Amino acid sequence: MAATEPVIEIREVTRTYGEGPPALADVTLSVRAGEAVAVLGPSGSGKSTLLNLVAGLDRPTAGGVTVDGVRVDGLSEAGSARYRRAKVGMVFQFFNLLDDLTVTDNVLLPAQLAGLPRAEARRRAAGLLEHLRVDRHAGAYPGTLSGGERQRVAVARALMNRPALLLADEPTGALDTASGEDVRKLLAELNAEGQTIILVTHDRVLAESCTTRTVELVDGRIVRDTEHATAVAR
């Protein structure tokens, strides 16, 4: 896919729950391949709803969501699972690593679910751990690692199937300042290497320091869409 083509197309999307106000209201958003976009806003602004729609974990009440050529809102439950395995890597605030598995085995999980041959999966996992500078912890368990190291392992797991899109939901929210800075630099490095990233956060400093564009939501609507300097590891 060329760097200027959209990897995400969200068209006139509304998501309502019950009779309350919409979580998202007539949102249209396009994200090009290679962009790093921060979705910024207060609690209740619709950030998590937007992320869930892109991930295929939720469906819009109206409108359409297309990611890397896949019409996500029209997929079955099984189709959504296949889509996530093939197209999306996800990083969460609290890592979501399995404490009874080693670092390597945590990273291998997506490849196992996708049916990647074991030898190829192990080569890919080892390469990711080395690239993300946590290879010395390959045989360790997550509970022995620092918060920043665990988030690096979580990023390695998210990248295991070479997804078109990396989704990060408050990835520094559970980290101390030093670990948060470590993850911020990592996200900037990944984007500089060409990874498309959607980062959901309430932290404006994080949003503006490791992404190329900031989209601000208030009450389910986009109120500002700002491009800024290319993300670099500062």
Rank of each mutant, 00 (worst) to 15 (best):
E12D: 15
T14H: 04
T14Y: 07
R15I: 05
T16F: 03
Y17S: 11
Y17A: 14
Y17T: 10
Y17Q: 05
G18D: 06
E19W: 08
E19K: 14
G20P: 02
G20F: 03
P21L: 12
P21N: 10
A23Q: 08
A23Y: 02
A23V: 06
A23N: 04
A25G: 05
A25D: 14
A25L: 08
D26R: 12
D26E: 10
D26F: 12
V27S: 01
V27C: 05
T28E: 12
L29M: 10
L29P: 01
L29T: 01
S30F: 06
S30D: 13
V31H: 03
V31A: 01
R32P: 03
A33N: 15
A33V: 11
A33K: 15
A33M: 07
G34A: 12
E35K: 05
E35Y: 11
V37W: 02
V37A: 07
A38E: 03
A38W: 00
A38N: 04
A38V: 07
V39K: 00
L40R: 05
L40Q: 03
G41N: 10
G41A: 12
P42K: 15
P42R: 13
P42Q: 14
S43W: 02
S43N: 13
S43H: 04
S43F: 06
S43I: 06
G44V: 08
S45K: 03
S45R: 05
S45F: 13
S45H: 02
S45P: 11
G46H: 00
K47P: 00
K47N: 01
K47E: 01
T49R: 02
T49K: 02
L50F: 03
L50Q: 01
N52M: 14
N52S: 13
N52I: 09
N52Y: 13
N52C: 10
L53C: 13
L53E: 01
V54A: 04
G56V: 06
G56L: 09
L57T: 07
L57M: 13
D58E: 14
D58W: 04
R59N: 09
P60D: 04
A62C: 10
G63L: 08
G63W: 03
G64R: 15
V65W: 00
V67T: 10
D68V: 05
D68F: 09
D68Y: 03
D68H: 11
D68K: 01
G69R: 08
V70L: 06
V70Q: 04
R71H: 09
R71L: 11
R71G: 11
V72F: 03
G74I: 09
G74W: 11
G74C: 07
L75A: 10
L75M: 14
L75W: 10
E77N: 15
A78V: 15
